[in-house]
Amino acid sequence: MSHNLSHHPDNVMLVEFSAGTLPTAESICVSAHLHFCEQCRTELLRLDQVGSQLLTEAEPAEIDESLFDTVMAKIDSAEASPKLATAEKVQSFPHSVSKLIKNPQHQPIWKRLSASVDIARFKTGQSEFEVALHRICAGGKTPKHDHSGVEYTVVLKGSFSDERSVYKEGDFLVRQPGDVHQPMGAQNGECICLSALQAPIKLSNPLGFLMKPLLRINPM
């Protein structure tokens, strides 16, 4: 699990993740990468110390005397009520991804996208990105495509390659608008990736007409 990864989120994303200002879709991808990447977990722990230090240096605000009692009363009443059973852990995917899979078996519901690619879309409560799992069969080729928005990809299982490199479990990739690529699944087994694909901004994007119906984006 802690083999050296060569593709990581950049400093900006990690800082915003640590500060809690990174938007939902990007946070899901960073979170999935952290599951695999010890190096980024270490950096994050240190970034949290920055937040912690700034919290300590804050000018203390005035607190109403009664607030402590209010909190204790809430604590006591919460302890009196029965605890909810914790959901069964499904370890095949990083925690944040498993939680997005809503059925009781925690199995993604795949839909065919092309002969070699399946997709399982997630509801994430935001409307800028389509967040989904993609499954490429062994040796499967995806159609050559470009993007009108940013795309983040994290490899969760297996590996795939494109013109530039081979991407393995945990690798975090960013594709900028206009990048053209043709991912191909590894020969030795299927590959599952998490991706967040930015929905095109309507009418303002000259590349929009190039979108194939196949790659239509549905943020939800």
């Binding site: 599951h35 977990r41 925690h95 997005l100 997630f122 509801k123 994430t124 409560g125």
Partner: peptide, 19 residues
């Protein structure tokens, strides 16, 4: 946000067991 949010922020911070 009026939409239902399936994840809480602490879900992003789940440590793998074999940390």
């Amino acid at each position: 946000n009026t939409q239902h949010l399936p994840l809480e922020n602490e879900d992003y911070w789940h440590e793998p067991d074999e940390d």
